[in-house]
């Protein structure tokens, strides 16, 4: 009962958040410097040509009118077409967003496993050699930029040791094609029963996932270390020990306390990584949403930028909703 009401409340917030999101994405681009018409036409275009393009893009209409027409089309599911490729933004998002999400999701899992391992170990052996070693590792991971990590991984795992395939997209030049259902290749290949393609997709995910996973493991490691250190110091943990529970059980009791902030951090990272994976996507020719948006920003491709902002915002809002529900489900104290 109480749980459903709480979830209901969170759901009600979604349309409001979305409205704010749409308005922000509109305004943000209004404030952006530069004239897309000039960008499209090129530096050597005549004034008349530019004016024509401005006219066709509706750039000369008053702000209010443009806002309303933008709002209207978003509600109808029309996110416009790219200024340059003329492709519908929505269709492109459908292909690219899952590619990014698959990458980000797996990276976060790797980051969480590696980071939790380091953080919990450090918290448990606080102030001792193990702690210094794990903290050093975390600092190292954090200080390596993700693109450098990617290049290092490519150099060793692809170039030197040939463990991983060439960094070119989700399936390389294999010519394998997969019927898109969810857009997640690991899922779609399994659904199609194509084990070859599944392995191929996995191999191509390996390096970018590792690159992002290792770099972001640092963030999980830091949060895990500090929350676990607090939890391991708590009366609850001392009481569990005083009852004679094994150290594994005791650490697990501490983890039950520490998991909420760690999960929250994971959700924040998820939102941040949807755009934050852009450089990794570019390095690995990954047909994802981040690199697509990055290109759009550089060329002032407004509909694409807006579409990306909406999509990333929508995903973030959804992830936080799921997080809220998860936290409610995990903690019996909030249920009444």
């Amino acid at each position: 009962m109480g749980l459903m009401r709480l979830i209901g409340k969170r759901l009600l917030l979604i349309p409001i958040s979305l409205f704010i999101l749409v308005s922000l994405s509109f305004l943000l681009l209004e404030l952006m410097p530069g004239n897309p018409a000039i960008t499209i036409a090129g530096d050597f275009a005549s004034d008349a040509e530019i004016e024509k393009i401005e006219e066709s893009l509706g750039l000369n209409d008053p702000l209010g009118a443009r806002y309303l027409s933008y709002l209207g089309s978003v509600v109808r599911g029309d996110l416009g077409r790219s200024f340059f490729s003329d492709q519908p933004v929505l269709g492109e998002l459908r292909e690219r967003l899952p590619a990014t999400m698959e990458l980000v999701f797996l990276s976060l899992i790797v980051a969480a496993i590696v980071g939790l391992f380091l953080g919990v170990l450090g918290a448990y052996y606080r102030g001792r050699k193990v702690d210094k070693a794990t903290r050093g590792t975390v600092t190292l991971f954090q200080s390596i930029p993700d693109f450098l990590m990617a290049l290092l991984l490519i150099f060793f795992l692809f170039y030197l040791w040939s463990v991983a395939p060439a960094p070119v997209g989700r399936l390389g030049f294999s010519g394998v094609s997969v019927e898109p259902i969810t857009g997640f290749l690991l899922v779609d290949t399994l659904v199609a029963g194509d084990l070859n393609a599944f392995v191929l997709a996995g191999q191509h995910l390996l390096l970018p996932v590792l690159a992002l996973g290792i770099v972001y493991a640092a963030y999980f490691g830091k949060t895990a270390r500090s929350t676990m250190a607090t939890a391991l110091d708590s009366t609850q943990v001392e009481f569990a020990r005083a009852c004679g529970l094994s150290e594994w059980k005791v650490v697990y009791y501490a983890f039950l306390q520490a998991r909420t902030p760690i999960l929250t951090y994971g959700a924040i990272l998820f939102g941040a990584l949807i755009g934050g994976a852009a450089i990794i996507e570019t390095i690995f020719s990954w047909p994802g949403a981040g690199s697509w948006a990055l290109t759009a920003i550089l060329s002032l491709d407004i509909p694409v930028i807006q579409g990306f902002i909406l999509a990333a915002g929508f995903v973030t809002i959804t992830v936080f909703l799921l997080l809220d529900v998860l936290i409610l489900l995990l903690d019996p104290r909030v249920r009444l």
Partner: peptide, 27 residues
């Protein structure tokens, strides 16, 4: 470590100051 762990709870019972801090809130 193993022997003392067996003593705790079994031969010595510990009562903490604040029961709400001592009990596991999740279980």
């Amino acid at each position: 470590k193993k022997e003392i762990r067996q003593v705790r709870g079994d031969k010595i019972g510990f009562v903490a100051q604040n029961p709400f801090a001592a009990l596991n809130p999740i279980y």
